[in-house]
């Protein structure tokens, strides 16, 4: 395991930010730490990056205990925190040079590394401009670049794409993908289920400081199980259609009065069965759709609230 936490507990007064969390990240893979606001994601990242210490429990990176050898851990990790941690007054290049120097790169190396990263993150032209002139997306990219200055084998990304437009998000996903291809181990937190689906090999869902589910995206979707088929028919034909479809699968709550939703195990096979049954009953079909479960469904089911439902998350 490149990253491992065991029974992490961290309380802030009455707030149980982490209440006994364990998980591991296999070397060279991506773990998505998924959870609503206040779930404890950032707290876990801060413990793993040696910024704060847990009340109890252990955290290790590349087999090195974080509490015991924080210096060694810091040499091997990169962190892009939830909020871009960059110096607004300095230029992009100066920011990267500063981090390089603080990672003890010789002056010339810090310079060339800054140049290289600016290029990689599409910031070459903006490299000598103050960050005050950067857009949110540029700032995020610079923040990620700063996390990579000393070529860390393990990377922690706390909500790396929050606040980015879809285009910038795709760009950042591509960059993270490249890093993983180069062998970097990544732990990323996110509230975007699509992001976890897309980037993460393994997903750990936490809520109220507890792990409530873990597995691959496919496994998690499988736990919610059901694929649905939704059939839309002409207004008068609903009852007839309902009867015809009852042989295909149990009915669930439909979205509209003239729609029938049924729960099925195998989407593609059930579609054929449904079409045959409807055809045999000579019912005219206006629409037919297969709905696979999304991670959003999983999330809702597991946590009892939607990923972006801030209201219920804080309690």
């Amino acid at each position: 395991m490149a990253v491992e936490v065991e029974d992490l507990v961290k309380h802030f007064g009455d707030v149980h930010a982490l209440d006994g969390v364990s998980f591991g990240v296999e070397a060279g893979t991506v773990l998505g730490l998924l959870g609503p606001n206040g779930a404890g994601k950032t707290t876990a990242v801060r413990i793993l990056t040696s910024i704060i210490t847990p009340d109890t429990g252990t955290a290790s990176v590349l087999g090195i205990d974080v509490a015991e050898y924080p210096e060694s851990v810091r040499l091997r990790i990169g962190l892009a925190g939830q909020y871009a941690a960059v110096d607004e007054v300095l230029t992009g290049r100066e920011n990267l040079r500063l981090v390089g120097r603080l990672c003890h790169l010789p002056r010339a190396d810090a310079e060339s590394r800054a140049e290289e990263l600016l290029g990689r993150f599409g910031l070459s032209d903006a490299g000598d401009r103050s960050l005050k002139t950067y857009s949110g997306g540029m700032r995020r990219r610079l923040d990620l670049a700063a996390a990579l200055v000393h070529r860390p084998p393990v990377l922690f990304l706390d909500e790396p794409t929050t606040g980015l437009d879809p285009g910038s998000r795709l760009d950042l996903w591509a960059i993270i993908g490249e890093l993983v291809d180069e062998g970097t181990t990544v732990l990323l937190t996110t509230q975007y289920l699509e992001e976890a689906d897309r980037l993460a090999d393994q997903i750990v869902v936490i809520d109220h400081g507890l792990v409530i589910a873990e597995g691959t995206a496919t496994e998690l979707k499988g736990r919610i199980g059901s694929t649905h088929i939704e059939v839309v028919v002409a207004a008068g034909a609903a009852d007839q259609a309902r009867a015809a479809l009852s042989t295909v699968g149990p009915e669930t709550a439909p979205d509209a009065p003239n729609a029938i939703a049924i729960q099925v195990a195998d989407g593609s096979k059930a579609v054929l069965d449904a079409v045959r049954a409807l055809d045999a009953a000579a019912i005219e079909v206006e629409g037919l759709a297969v709905r696979e479960p999304t991670l959003d469904d999983v999330f809702l089911e597991l946590t009892g609230h939607a990923a972006d439902d801030i209201q219920t998350a804080g309690d």
């Binding site: 990056t49 210096e71 810091r74 925190g81 909020y83 941690a85 960059v86 603080l102 990672c103 003890h104």
Partner: peptide
């Protein structure tokens, strides 16, 4: 406020710096 201290603390630099 800018979160810079947070970054500095994750870097392999001397804490006193």
């Amino acid at each position: 406020q800018a979160g810079l201290i947070e970054r500095f603390r994750s870097l392999p630099m001397a804490r006193s710096a």
